[in-house]
Amino acid sequence: MRTFSAWLVLLVMGTAPIAAAELSLDVEIPRLDVSEYHRPYVAIWVQDEDQKVAANLAVWYQIRGSRKGHGTKWLPDLRQWWRRSGRGLEMPVDGISSATRPAGKHELKFNTADSELAKLKPGKYTLLVEASREVGGRELVEISFEWPKKTAEPIKVRGGKELGEVVLTITP
C-alpha cells in the first residue's frame, strides 16, 4: 500500500509539470535592405533525435484567394521542413498554417494542452525554424532542448540573414 502511494505521488509529480508547461517562442524576421522584398515562408517544428517530426508548430505561407492549394507551390523551398513533414500534409493545417508575417519580432505561445505538444514524450528534442524568401535566401536555425524542461531559462540563437534572434522559453 505504501509503495503504491509512493508510485502515485511520483506519477502525479512526474506528469504535472508537463501538463502545465508553456512553450513560448520569439522569432525575429529581420528588416532587409533589398530592392525586391517578399515576406518569407517560415516553418517551425520540433523533431526528435532521429530527425522525425514530433510536433509541427507553425507554417507561414502565402494564403491568398479562395482557390484550393493557392500559395502552396513554393512550400518545398522550406526544404528541410518539406522533407521531414510538409510533403505529407494536406494544407492548410488547422492551428498550424497561417499567412506570412512582416519583418519584426513575433511571439508565439503554445500550451502543452495543444494537441501537437501534448504528444511529446520526455526526451531530447530540437526546435527548428526554417525561413525561405522569394528572390532571397533560405536559412535554418536549431535549438536543442530537453523535454520536460526544468528551468524557465530562455535559449537564444541568432540567424545569419533570413532570420534574426530566435528565443525559446519553456516554462515548467
Partner: peptide, 8 residues
Amino acid sequence: TSLSGSEP
C-alpha cells in the same frame, strides 16, 4: 522533381 501546389 519535388513539387507542390494546386496544379504543378
